[in-house]
């Protein structure tokens, strides 16, 4: 996507989010049982201030993106960014991680971690299943033992096993 277009879209999305916070989230999710004589006494004072600043900065971002001469409006934020295929890999990894956290509640740290490590290692082109399995078991076991015995942290057992 063209740099300028993407910047403007980013700015507009932030602006919309900030306005949603000001006009929907703050009135509905901050307990304000009384009217305050001084605005600064209100619990909504600081969140409102922050949200308005974000809205103003988003506007400024859009203007600065539009203001830039076409020649200099090249994308310089993506210099070291991932290729499309690599980005897709990252999304896959993110999905695996979200699944991992959800699964941990039910099957516990040990099983969930062995499984997720094996999946991620395979996704990372470690083709030998034996290597992936071995690394997963060793790392999970090592971390579990370290935290259980040395740090006294009892990692989740999982609802199924409790």
């Amino acid at each position: 996507m063209q740099y300028r277009k993407r910047e403007v879209l980013t700015a507009v999305s932030i602006l919309v989010a900030a306005l949603a916070i000001i006009f929907y989230v703050i009135p509905n999710f901050i307990d304000m049982e009384e009217e305050f004589e001084l605005a600064s006494l209100s619990p909504a004072f600081f969140p409102n201030l922050a949200a308005w600043i974000i809205a103003a900065l988003a506007g400024l971002l859009a203007i600065s993106a539009l203001w830039q001469p076409k020649k200099s409006a090249t994308d310089n934020s993506d210099e070291e960014w991932l290729s499309r295929a690599e980005e897709l890999n990252a999304y896959k990894a993110a999905l695996v991680i979200v699944g991992y956290v959800l699964a941990m509640k039910y099957i516990g740290f040990l099983i969930a971690t062995v499984l997720v490590l094996a999946v991620l290692l395979v996704l990372q082109d470690i083709k030998k299943p034996l290597h992936a399995g071995l690394i997963s078991i060793l790392v999970t076991g090592g971390v579990f033992l370290f935290f259980y015995f040395i740090m006294q942290v009892h990692l989740p057992k999982g609802l199924i096993f409790e």
Binding site: E86, N89, A90, A93, I97, D125
Partner: peptide, 10 residues
Amino acid sequence: EVLFQLGKKS
């Protein structure tokens, strides 16, 4: 950073 690095080919 982990997500970024996992995106890259090993």
